[in-house]
Amino acid sequence: MRRTFALLVAGVLAGVPAAAALRVIGSTTVNPVVSEAAAILRAEAGLEIQVDTAGGSSGGIAALADGRAEMAMVSRPIKVADRQRFPGVDFRSTTIGADALALVVSADVWSAGVRCLSREQVRGLYERRIARWSEVGGPDRQVVFFNKEPGRGTWEVFADWLYGGVEATPMVSHPEVGSNEEARSKVASTRGAITQLSAAWADGVRTFALGLCETGLPVAHPTRAAVAAGDYPLSRPLTVVTDGPPVGVARRLIDFVLGGRGQALVTRHGYLPLSQANGEGGHP
């Protein structure tokens, strides 16, 4: 009897559509900015905005295409492959800031004097050809590469830079990390650790962002100034993506983030605001 009643109630409720909530899914790099903007808009304008980070950038794009979200947070440019995979979706991406992606290492590697790596060295580390830090001027300790999960924007930007594309990236097996927080906390608590991480998340106490050095060129440090000047190659746009032009709550959220208070949030989290981001930030 009670069950019948419960089913009945469920049926009635199911008929009532949820209020026009905006669902945002995607990148943990973009998340702090959007989450806080959403919290402000919730408190001040009563807008309903749900933010979730399951699956990272590509998870967000998949959710947008499947109709599980109205907005994706994406910490990389939208690619041809995305449009091919979801031909029915009219991807409209709005850049809200830029960010330097860095190779971030643990304190013991940093204090042993490793300050920058060349692309070839990064390849060696990623492919496990370089197994000990002593081979690149670091401590005599094995390299622990915490690889960002596939589908994370960070990982795809890294793969694009290092190998010229996701498909060309060799198959490797490393321990995997998901969110930026997880990457940071694991590097902080592990000796000889390295990961691909937004430079803004390296705290300079237990985690340190390395520069990139090619012979004959000055070291490119992942600083905001270097990204603004286009001197750091591993920079990327931070975007929110909608299917078709943003309308309604999505529009208001975007307007807020692009406005003064929203851009202040971008800066507060260590990212580059649009005014300094050089259009889209000189991504590769």
Binding site: A54, G59, A62, R85, F86, E149, P150, G151, G178
Partner: peptide
């Protein structure tokens, strides 16, 4: 339990 479950969805 990993995020690959989301990624595989489509």
């Amino acid at each position: 339990g990993s995020s690959e479950t989301f990624l595989a969805y489509g």
